[in-house]
Amino acid sequence: MKLIDILKESSVIADLQANTKTEVLDALVNAVAKSYPAIDKREMLNVLLEREKLGSTGIGDGIAIPHGKLPNIPDIISGFALSKSGIEFDSLDGKPAYLFFLLVAPDNSVGTHLKMLARISRMLKNTAFRNKLMNATSQKDIYRIISEEDSKY
């Protein structure tokens, strides 16, 4: 499965306006909910916040991959947000996060969930890819950049 199979362009935020971890997660949930209106936004936000209590999903290098599991979704879904100014996310390196990939999976999808987390992590190890995302100016540009990078794996 490719990332682009689960990421809709409407779930991409090109200019994230948030100041806190909770605001980031709320914005991502709202973006994803546009494509999946049956999702309980409050439940999804709570799942993500609970996951953050276990340890930050801010992995360093300006990247955060908030993720969690929901019982009543048919398939794994994703969202993306770009913050030009950076947001404190309790990242492992203590630095702000700029690139946020959201991943939410059904309760029963352990293998797929882990494979998609690994795929996103692999893609984000590429400094040129991260730089392209940071310099993107629109939702369409970001979606295209992710699609192009995704096709390499």
Rank of each mutant, 00 (worst) to 15 (best):
K2E: 00
D5I: 03
I6D: 01
I6Y: 15
E9S: 10
I13R: 03
D15V: 00
L16P: 03
L16I: 05
Q17E: 14
A18Y: 07
E23C: 10
V24C: 06
D26K: 13
D26P: 00
L28P: 00
L28E: 02
A33V: 00
K34E: 12
Y36L: 10
Y36N: 13
P37K: 11
P37N: 09
A38V: 04
I39V: 15
I39K: 02
M44I: 05
N46I: 03
L48C: 05
E50A: 15
R51C: 04
R51L: 05
T57N: 11
G58C: 07
G58A: 09
G62D: 12
G62I: 13
I63R: 02
I63V: 15
A64L: 12
I65D: 10
I65H: 08
H67V: 04
K69F: 08
N72C: 04
N72Y: 08
I73T: 06
I73V: 11
P74D: 14
D75Y: 11
D75R: 15
D75C: 08
I76Y: 05
S78L: 06
S78E: 01
A81I: 06
S83M: 12
S83L: 11
K84L: 12
G86L: 11
I87R: 05
E88Q: 15
F89V: 06
D90V: 08
L92P: 00
G94L: 12
P96K: 14
Y98R: 10
F101Q: 04
L102D: 01
L103A: 03
V104Q: 02
V104A: 03
A105F: 03
A105Q: 04
P106E: 11
D107E: 14
D107F: 14
S109E: 15
T112R: 06
T112D: 14
K115I: 00
L117Y: 06
A118W: 00
R119E: 13
R119K: 15
S121V: 05
M123I: 05
L124F: 12
F129D: 00
R130K: 15
R130W: 03
N131Y: 11
K132N: 09
L133D: 02
M134W: 00
N135S: 14
A136Q: 10
S138Q: 10
S138H: 08
Q139K: 15
K140S: 15
Y143A: 04
I145R: 05
I146H: 04
E149F: 01
E149V: 02
D150F: 00
D150K: 04
S151I: 11
S151M: 13
K152S: 09
Y153V: 11
